[in-house]
Every structure is written in structure tokens, then in C-alpha cells.
Design a protein around this nucleic acid. Structure first.
Length: 114
DNA sequence: AATATGGCACAAA
DNA sequence: CTTTGTGCCATAT
């Protein structure tokens, strides 16, 4: 594998509350800009459900990721809204405003996972 | 080993 | 702004 899923999880943990990021940003931070799709896989099979806020990861254009179903998506939207990220009709309001891509690769390297 | 599928991204029309 | 088509990486069978 070319991507270190452990690193991806650490990076995602850096996203502050009320902010969102994209699979692209994570893939880029992990060192494989083309592995955005694989990042989705990591979220799907993430062993750190509460620790890794996969619901904070969205499409690069601000839409919610595929997830599994509308009900599921709706639940994520609700959680995001509680954190301060408004979602309207499957799209994040002021996506640029909430977008976070200033990941610290060094910091992630030094971080530890439970 | 090969094929299909999936919580993606991007260019082109 | 929307719809197609193509490329990419990691699993499942």
C-alpha cells in the first residue's frame, strides 16, 4: 500500500470542530494526491469511529460524500450542523469558510493513535 | 492473478 | 451549473 492509513487518521484528527476537509486534502497530505478514493475506503473501514470524524470529510466541491444512504447522510448533516457546519440540500453552506486543509504532516507523524 | 466495486477528483462537453 | 468519461488507490471475491 502506498498510503499510510494510520497517518491519514492522525491527519483527520487535526481537523478542528466546526471545520470540514476533503478526501483530496487528506490524500494530498498523506502524500498521494490521487488516492482520494482510497481515503474513502479508509473512512469506511475506520477502526477509530469516534476518534476519526469521518463525517467531516466531504467531496472537494463541498457536497457530502457518497455514504450509504440518504438517511445516513441526513444523520451526518445533523452532526455537522451541531458542530457549526450548515448543510443545505446536500451541499455545505460557505464551504470555503469551513474548509480546512492546513494539515501538519510533522505533527501527525508525532501523534499517536489509541 | 483477474475483475468488480466503492463515502473521489478532474477535464471536457 | 450539470452530465459524461477517465484515472487512481485499496478491498472483496
Amino acid at each position: 500500500m502506498k498510503i499510510d492509513r494510520n497517518l491519514v487518521y492522525k491527519l483527520l484528527k487535526q481537523v478542528p470542530k466546526g471545520k470540514v476537509t476533503s478526501y483530496k486534502a487528506l490524500a494530498n497530505a498523506a502524500g498521494n494526491p490521487k488516492a482520494s478514493r482510497a481515503i474513502g475506503m479508509f473512512m469506511k473501514t475506520n477502526p477509530y469511529a469516534p476518534n476519526v470524524p469521518c463525517h467531516r470529510v466531504v467531496y472537494s466541491d463541498g457536497r457530502l460524500g457518497g455514504f450509504s444512504g440518504k438517511a445516513r447522510i441526513d444523520d451526518k448533516i445533523k452532526m455537522l450542523r451541531e458542530e457549526g457546519v450548515l448543510v443545505k440540500d446536500g451541499r455545505i453552506v460557505d464551504f470555503k469558510k469551513h474548509y480546512f486543509d492546513k494539515f501538519s504532516i510533522e505533527k501527525a507523524m508525532r501523534a499517536t493513535l489509541p
